[in-house]
Design a protein around this nucleic acid. Structure first.
Length: 426
DNA sequence: AACGAACCCAACCGCGAGGCC
DNA sequence: GGGCCTCGCGGTTGGGTTCGT
């Protein structure tokens, strides 16, 4: 029996990489790009398999990798994303700039998981261990509390699915938008480098659509910067490169401010919509989301303590989670997390199966359609007033989608480039 | 100072998805 | 349509380092 080797050829080196090997790999990729990994080792003069080269590059040699200790904010982001996405390290890494999935995975396994376990929180479910659903079935808190926990679990499951799908769609949209922007830029740069059009709809749209939680890869940001430099001059390229290198939270804040300037009053106040983040975080943290959490205001410490009262958590735990709460509520999470229709946006509150003000997953015809609905930005014209914005931003009501066919067309329902202010510069 | 235990993390492995022929 | 190939992902390993006794 035994495992078949990942590389059929004998004599290939395994184990730790030497500085000489690193240098060879770096030099080759800098000069030629990695191309086909399988053929790379021979071309680069390495006695390694392509897989090993790829791993070494992606996890260690890539120039856009940040090494060293994880910040508190990074830790909290990992915890939150893990609660949503589970062990999907690559997806989590998408939201942590300059960190590799392997690094995050290692950090989770060696630090965070243990810390959570030590605090009595199940690292898998992200819930207090003593808070197991239906504990004992008969004894204990009784039916009411059990039912409440069951509802909370349903909330969590539903919310996690919803948010997971949203994150995926957001990342996908951002990638596609960037690709479109690159393609459009390359085309316009090659055709009329000397006389770029004053308005660059492709750029503008792609830029505005860029996910607050997405990150440009090293090659993407470099390519984007170089293309922009050709098309729009060094200043614009520098600004774009700076934004590309920016932390997604910061980039999103900047994007929000820019959009606010362009759209004036027609901009949703993300702070007002903070209930979703607060409520969801609360849900993650104590699993006891109530109607109270739906109010627009951010949960304060007293409310948090009140909500957590039944959990018999230690002071240490509470402080830890409170710190997470504070960071989340003060914008550590991408504020796009609040891109959820308010309850009023739906025809009736009865259509909302849970107290969470978001459409039930079942409202969508399929998970795939959910992905596309998240992408479907309402046309700019739909924003007739700030109030309508507050209720419809980023996500039309599920009823708006009558079939998967209409969903597929709604994918292109991003604001038309012309809708952007003529004064818009990029 | 010496030794074993615990920890850390780079690297490996198998598997599945997607593209190509 | 099916086989092959490449790539990326998540789980796991094992060697080096740090910590505790």
């Amino acid at each position: 029996m035994g495992r078949s080797p990942c590389c059929e050829k004998d004599g290939l080196k395994k184990g730790p990489w030497t500085p000489e090997e690193d240098q060879k790999l770096l030099a080759y990729i800098e000069q030629h790009g990695h191309g086909c990994w399988r053929s790379l080792p021979a071309k680069a003069g390495l006695q390694r398999c392509g897989k090993s080269c790829r791993l070494r590059w992606t996890n260690y040699l890539r120039p856009d990798i940040k090494r060293g200790k994880f910040s508190l904010q990074e830790e909290q982001t990992i915890i939150q994303l893990h609660a949503l996405l589970g062990n999907r390290w690559s997806a989590i890494a998408t939201h942590l700039p300059k960190r590799t999935d392997n690094e995050i995975k290692n950090y989770w396994n060696t630090h965070l998981k243990k810390r959570l376990a030590k605090m009595g929180i199940d690292p898998v479910t992200h819930k207090p261990r003593s808070d197991a659903l239906g504990t004992g079935g008969g004894g204990g808190p009784g039916g009411a509390a059990g039912a409440q926990h069951a509802r909370a679990a349903a909330h969590l499951s539903h919310t996690a699915q919803w948010e997971s799908a949203r994150l995926e769609a957001e990342a996908r949209l951002a990638r596609e938008a960037r690709l479109r922007a690159l393609a459009a830029s390359a085309a316009s740069a090659s055709s009329s480098v000397s006389a770029p059009q004053p308005q660059m709809p492709g750029h503008a749209a792609a830029h505005r659509l860029d996910s607050p939680t997405s990150t440009l890869s090293f090659s993407e940001s470099a390519a984007l910067a170089s293309v922009l430099q050709e098309a729009h001059g060094a200043a614009a390229a520098a600004a774009a490169a700076a934004r590309a290198a920016m932390h997604p939270m910061q980039a999103y804040e900047v994007a929000c401010k820019e959009q606010q300037q362009q759209w004036g009053d027609h901009v949703v106040d993300v702070a007002d919509a903070g209930f979703a983040a607060a409520g969801f975080t609360g849900l993650l943290l104590d699993g006891s989301l109530s109607q109270q959490d739906l109010r627009p205001a951010t949960r304060n410490d007293e409310d948090a303590a009140e909500a957590d009262a039944g959990l018999q958590e230690t002071e240490e735990e509470k402080n830890y989670w409170d710190s997470i709460m504070n960071l989340v509520n003060s914008s550590s999470l991408p504020t796009s997390s609040v891109a959820v229709p308010a309850a009023e946006a739906f025809p009736s509150s009865a259509s909302l199966p849970t107290s969470m003000a978001m459409p039930a997953l079942e409202a969508y015809s399929s998970p795939a359609s959910l992905l596309t609905t998240t992408v479907a930005m309402p046309a700019l014209e739909a924003y007739s007033s700030s109030s309508s914005l507050q209720t419809s931003v980023a996500m039309p009501a599920p009823e708006a989608y009558s079939s998967s066919a209409s969903l597929s067309t709604s994918v292109v329902a991003v604001p038309a480039p012309e809708a952007y202010s003529p004064a818009l510069e990029f």
